[in-house]
């Protein structure tokens, strides 16, 4: 039933979770957006930064049960387009603490970030596992906290599997998409990444490797070990460089 915009605009009001006060300062609103949705915008004289947090499972084509904390790709993708297009946003800071998730959704978000023109910096805190690895390397510059870990392991199978060699080939192909993306967007070689992925003796009941912050940098997956101050400093540097390049043209 088509309804006019006017009819609805009187009936809808946005209310905040802690309710009560109608008028809120922009600072309070900002704090609320962090609390409720994990997004935040930072504005200062050096540039406006949009902070995107990718947490929990990357949710793809199937809605995951409510016990999972998820990052929904149908929201993140248009958000990335908006960030790229919005003149008020100068740079994007991506904070990662993810256990992995849907391959297609993870790669979609990673490709979107990798193809952005605006400066992007990623920071891995806690963990950036499985499909979190392509997400971490998708930014132009990546950082990892010393205590954060990244688990590199092959895609697993579940459900009915037909015991033919084509099944293996299919999974190897799916695996290859992740390998290619990571090697294209970081300094690690294809051979090294695959050897880490297929290593035995590191994970219980599985093949793969757990990399600590420092190891991820040594292997060339991540650019630098650091925290939020280093990440912001790098992002401001990139914003300033971009502004200078824009002025020269």
């Amino acid at each position: 039933m088509p309804v006019s915009k006017e009819k609805y605009s009187n009936k809808v009001s946005f209310i905040k979770m802690n309710g009560g006060q109608e008028q809120k300062s922009s600072e309070e609103n900002n704090a609320e957006s962090v609390k409720e949705f994990g997004t935040s915008s930072v504005k200062n004289s050096r540039g406006n930064i949009h902070c995107l947090t990718i947490i929990g499972q990357i949710e793809g084509h199937i809605i995951l049960p409510p016990q999972n904390k998820t990052t929904k790709y149908e929201h993140v993708i248009p958000q990335l387009v908006a960030i790229e297009e919005n003149n008020e946003v100068d740079g994007l800071l991506i904070i990662l603490n993810t256990v992995g998730g849907d391959v297609e959704a993870g790669l979609a978000i990673a490709e979107m970030i990798a193809s952005m023109k605006k400066p992007t910096v990623s920071l891995v805190l806690g963990g950036g596992h499985s499909i979190g690895v392509p997400l971490a390397v998708s930014a132009k510059y990546s950082l990892i906290a010393p205590s954060a870990t990244m688990t590199i392991h092959p895609i697993r199978m579940s459900g009915l599997i037909i015991g033919v060699s084509q099944t293996f080939e299919y999974f190897d192909k799916m695996q290859e998409r992740v390998v290619q993306f990571v090697t294209r967007n970081s300094k690690i070689s294809r051979e090294r990444f695959r050897s880490l992925m297929l290593k035995t003796g590191e994970l219980a009941n599985d093949v793969g490797t757990v990399l600590f912050g420092e190891d991820a940098v040594k292997n060339g997956i991540i650019d630098q070990v650091g925290g939020v101050s280093e990440a912001l400093e790098k992002l401001y540097e990139m914003i300033e460089e971009r502004k200078k390049a824009g002025e020269q043209q």
Binding site: Q57, G60, H61, I62, L64, P65, N68, V99, G100, G101, D102, V103, E104, G106, G127, H129, S130, I131, T151, H153, I155, R156, S158, M174, V178
Partner: peptide, 12 residues
């Protein structure tokens, strides 16, 4: 859909 995660399927 292929899930690439360290969390087992049973938990997800």
């Amino acid at each position: 859909m292929i899930i690439h995660s360290i969390v087992p399927y049973e938990i997800i």
